[in-house]
Simulated scan of single mutants.
Amino acid sequence: MALHSLFYPAQSLETELQFFQQGLGLAARFRDGQRYAALDAGGLTIGIAAEDERICTQAAAVFRVADIEQSLALLMAAGATLLRPLERGPHEWRAVVASPAGHHLILSSKL
């Protein structure tokens, strides 16, 4: 398991991109229309998600895992609350959980 990126849900992809690019000088690494953009934050990716890609309501750490079903089961056994069940996204498998304190975490694995 490795920290893959930080996920920020947004009402407007354009507004958030402008904020991160102009305010912090981050360069775009990838963009999927008006739904998602990835920015380079010096070794960490900042993911901005709008429209159907807003899979949670607060900023969340995204962990890339080899076996998403096993990792999800371990988190649930450790007290996580399932917020969004395992699903196939446009570029990955993903699920969203909350820690016992209510912090959102996104699990992700390659298709």
Rank of each mutant, 00 (worst) to 15 (best):
A95P: 10
L75T: 02
L75H: 01
A59H: 07
L74N: 13
L72F: 06
A66F: 13
R54V: 06
L75C: 07
S99H: 11
W93C: 01
Q70A: 11
D67G: 06
Q70M: 07
L107Q: 04
V97K: 07
M76W: 08
L83T: 11
H91N: 13
H103K: 14
G79K: 12
E92R: 03
T81Y: 05
V62I: 15
E53V: 05
A77T: 05
A80Q: 02
L86V: 02
A80D: 00
R64F: 07
A60L: 10
S109N: 01
E92M: 08
I68E: 00
V65H: 11
L74R: 08
A59C: 02
V62N: 09
S71V: 07
Q58D: 10
V97G: 06
S108T: 02
T81M: 03
T81Q: 14
A61G: 03
C56H: 15
A95F: 09
A101Y: 09
R64P: 14
R64T: 03
S71D: 02
H91T: 14
S108D: 02
A61Q: 04
L74E: 15
G102T: 10
R64A: 15
Q58V: 08
L86F: 10
A80K: 04
D67N: 10
P90R: 06
D67S: 12
L107G: 10
P100H: 13
L82E: 15
A101G: 00
H91K: 04
E69S: 12
Q70C: 08
T81V: 07
L86M: 03
A61F: 07
S109D: 05
W93K: 03
R94S: 13
A77V: 06
A80S: 12
A78E: 05
L72V: 01
I55R: 06
A66T: 13
S71P: 01
L72G: 08
A95R: 00
T57I: 05
P90E: 02
A66C: 01
T57H: 06
Q58W: 02
L105P: 01
H91R: 11
S109V: 00
L83D: 13
R84N: 03
A78Y: 09
I106E: 14
V97S: 05
A60P: 15
E53C: 00
L72W: 15
W93D: 06
W93G: 00
Q70V: 11
I55A: 14
A59N: 05
A73P: 02
E87M: 04
A95K: 09
I55L: 06
R84Q: 10
V97D: 11
E69L: 01
A59I: 07
Q70W: 09
